[in-house]
């Protein structure tokens, strides 16, 4: 059972402000989804290893500088003296 409080906590961890109505609705819907995902319970965890893409060190990026040309933060709407402006940390 997924409680409304649990949805609220998940909302906090995901930084999503949820209305009371949303909390109730999500609790029911996500409960349904999670019930379906519980199918995975019947698989034994042992034998198989997860698949991973593997590469050799030599295939990774070389340590050569290539500065980006253009203004990366041009799209930032709130700026001051070159800094990007964000909310208070208090």
């Amino acid at each position: 059972m997924i409680s409304n409080d649990e949805i609220k906590h998940l909302g906090w961890l995901s930084r999503l402000e949820l209305t009371d109505e949303e909390i109730v609705r999500y609790a029911l819907q996500i409960e349904e989804v999670i019930k379906y995902l519980n199918k995975l319970d019947s698989i034994s965890l042992s034998e198989v290893e997860p698949v991973r893409l593997k590469k050799k060190i030599s295939e990774l990026r070389k340590d050569d500088v290539k500065p980006f040309e253009g203004d990366v933060l041009e799209v930032a709407k709130n700026r001051k003296n070159g800094y990007v402006k964000g909310p208070r940390m208090v």
């Binding site: 990026r61 340590d63 050569d64 500088v65 290539k66 500065p67 980006f68 990366v72 933060l73 003296n81 070159g82 800094y83 990007v84």
Partner: peptide, 29 residues
């Protein structure tokens, strides 16, 4: 190192004007 961990920006950021040592990768675009 010459560059950052996951992009080709300068590793040395000291004494640079704010947000002039960034690229789409390290600014999380």
């Amino acid at each position: 190192l010459q560059t950052k961990l996951f992009c080709s920006c300068h590793c040395d950021y000291h004494g640079k004007l704010p947000n002039t040592n960034v690229c789409p990768v390290c600014s999380g675009l």
